[in-house]
């Protein structure tokens, strides 16, 4: 039997998977995300148990304002879209477009964190801090852990922009951008569950 002939239309492996070692790091990053799911699952469980234990403090319904929450949701969903388009541009080899989409993602992420910090400060002004009740302890640690992830992601993306500027799209930088996009979309998924199970659930009463 002869070797299969080379198909002219055979699909090329994207650059981030082209090097075996770099590709292994993507699989490794998936393993990290899997463990991160466990962290958030624990925090969601804690919140599920304590979200009605308000002590003398405010209830979720009294505390949450949906305006800023909708804004945060919109910012994060859009940033997930922009980094998705960044990966699309990266696979076409368009380094400037990739950098522009990454930069836009950073701006949207910064807008998210700013809105969230503003929200937390306004809660603190109402003496609704994590000392107040079990509900607020669980709320602050869950939403705060997510916010800390997003903040870290912003700094990470800034370092990637410098690397893209210096090296362009290589097997190594492509893998780094790809793992960053996985991280960012993962945070978007976590936020969707925070939006649903914390904020919307709080309004169910």
């Amino acid at each position: 039997m002869s070797l299969p002939s080379v198909d002219e239309h055979a699909q090329k492996l994207p650059l981030e998977f082209a090097d075996e070692h770099e590709s292994l790091k993507i699989t490794g990053f998936w393993m990290f995300l899997v463990t991160d799911v466990l962290i958030f699952a624990s925090l969601f469980s804690t919140y599920a148990v304590f979200h009605n234990s308000v002590a003398a403090g405010p209830t979720a319904d009294q505390l949450f304002k949906m305006g800023p929450v909708l804004l945060e949701t919109l910012l994060l969903l859009t940033s997930s879209f922009t980094i998705g388009l960044g990966i699309y541009a990266m696979r076409k080899g368009q380094v400037r477009a990739l950098m522009a989409w990454t930069f836009l993602t950073i701006l949207l992420g910064a807008g998210f964190v700013t809105t969230e910090i503003h929200d937390f400060v306004s809660f603190a002004a109402l003496h609704a801090t994590w000392h107040t009740s079990a509900f607020l302890s669980a709320f602050d640690i869950l939403v705060g852990t997510h916010g800390a992830h997003v903040t870290f992601g912003i700094f990470w993306a800034v370092t990637l922009l410098f690397q893209l500027k210096k090296h362009g799209i290589t097997e190594r930088t492509a893998r780094k951008i790809y793992t960053f996009s996985l991280y960012w979309h993962f945070l978007d998924i976590v936020w969707v569950f925070i939006f649903t199970f914390v904020y919307l659930n709080g309004k169910l009463g």
Binding site: L13, S23, I26, W30, V34, V37, F40, A41, A48
Partner: peptide
């Protein structure tokens, strides 16, 4: 997507099962 095999799908199924169990039961 993956090089060769999309191995990440197996631990993802596992962790979704654990997360669903843990949060769902709570």
């Amino acid at each position: 997507e993956g090089r060769g095999m999309a191995w990440q799908i197996i631990p993802l199924y596992l962790v979704f099962l654990i997360a669903f169990g843990m949060v769902g039961m709570s």
